[in-house]
Amino acid sequence: MFYPNSPQTSPQLTQIPYGQQYAMMQRQIQQPYHPFATTEPQARLYPYHYQGPIQQEQGGFITQQSTAASPQYVQMRVTPVDQSIMSGYPNQTANGSSSSSFNYNIHPQQQQQQQQQQQQLRHHAMPVGSVPLQDDRYRKQLIVNYLAPDVTSTDLHELFSRFGELDGARIIYDKQTNMSKGYGFVYFCHAEDAKEAVERMSGYEFHGKWLKVGYSTNPLNIVPSNSSPYVHAGSRGAAG
């Protein structure tokens, strides 16, 4: 039997160049792979992502010199942007860049009308829970959420009447099932009393439920100042 490094198959040491006398086997001759043993700084910083320098080929596509990437890492192929796409944008300079302001050559009167329309939209648009300043009635009506099913309009009136005089209180019921929808409205005579009720009743436990109280901004629920107070009856038909 002959071994790869046996004296019968191995040459004389004098015939082997210096430095390879003890590297006779194939696994010894093959050098191990060192990912950080390279002179390129990109490979030292990113050993798993770097795959060699990027070269520009004919046709405008950018390719990489090395083989496919590892399945664990996804390499994105980048193509140059066609400058003709950006030619339609206004205020574009000769080098292809555009300024931040756009001039669509709008007539001054049209621009003024658009600004007025935007101001009107901001004036009428009102986020949930906010209180408008032009109508004091919005500051007097509250919406009470997360009410228990057994709470009546009379219970709601008695709960909030300790903060001040009320114009009314009612629970909203479903017309088909005649069941409470879980929320109601309270109408105060003074805005200061309503503000105190919002601050003190939010998070209050009532009939096993934690109440959420806020201003009601729905104009359909506003009680006119010259109208008669609501009837605080315990029956659902009268309260709904």
Rank of each mutant, 00 (worst) to 15 (best):
S98H: 11
Q110A: 13
H124P: 01
G182F: 00
V131T: 10
Q110P: 09
R170E: 03
R139A: 14
S225H: 00
Y33S: 01
L211K: 10
Y104M: 12
E40K: 01
Y146N: 05
D82M: 09
K175T: 09
Q51V: 13
G168M: 13
L166F: 10
H107V: 14
P108R: 08
S130P: 12
Q51D: 14
T14K: 01
T9V: 02
Q75L: 15
S87C: 04
S99H: 02
S87V: 05
T67V: 10
R27S: 12
A197L: 02
S10L: 08
E57I: 06
T14S: 14
K209W: 00
D174H: 03
Y18A: 10
Q72H: 11
A238M: 13
Q55N: 10
S101V: 13
P219T: 05
V213K: 10
K175P: 07
F163A: 02
Q42V: 03
L121K: 00
Q115N: 04
P219K: 04
Q65A: 05
S66I: 10
G52T: 08
I171E: 08
K175V: 07
F160G: 09
M86R: 08
F160M: 11
Q20C: 10
S87T: 07
P35G: 13
H190L: 07
T217C: 07
T217R: 06
L133W: 03
G59D: 00
V131A: 05
P90M: 01
P219N: 07
A37K: 00
I29Y: 15
A233E: 01
T152E: 10
I16F: 12
A43N: 12
R137Q: 07
P17T: 05
D167C: 06
E199M: 00
P224I: 01
M25K: 05
A68N: 13
Y230V: 06
H207Q: 00
M25A: 02
F102G: 05
S235W: 00
N105G: 14
G96P: 12
A239E: 00
Q113P: 05
K175D: 14
S97Q: 11
R27M: 15
P35L: 11
A23Y: 08
H157R: 04
Q114N: 09
I171D: 15
S235E: 03
K212R: 08
S130R: 08
Q8F: 10
N95A: 02
M126A: 03
N5Q: 00
A43F: 08
G208C: 05
Q20W: 15
F188D: 02
G214W: 08
L220N: 15
V78I: 13
N105V: 15
R44M: 14
Q30C: 02
L45N: 10
H157D: 03
Q64E: 11
Q51L: 06
Q72F: 12
L121R: 03
P71L: 11
Y138A: 07
G129M: 00
Q114H: 08
S10H: 12
G88K: 14
H34L: 13
R162D: 12
A239D: 12
H157I: 14
T217I: 02
Q117Y: 08
Y173G: 11
Q75F: 12
Q113A: 13
Q119G: 04
V186H: 07
Q134H: 14
Q109I: 08
V78Y: 14
D135Q: 14
F102N: 10
V223E: 04
S70K: 03
Q176E: 13
G88L: 09
P149W: 09
G19V: 10
N221G: 11
P71Q: 04
I172N: 06
Y173T: 13
S101P: 11
T67I: 08
E40N: 03
H34W: 15
T177K: 09
H207C: 10
V186W: 10
D167H: 00
A233R: 04
M201R: 01
G52I: 13
Y73V: 07
P53H: 08
V231G: 10
R236T: 02
Y146H: 00
M25V: 11
T67C: 00
Q31Y: 08
T63M: 14
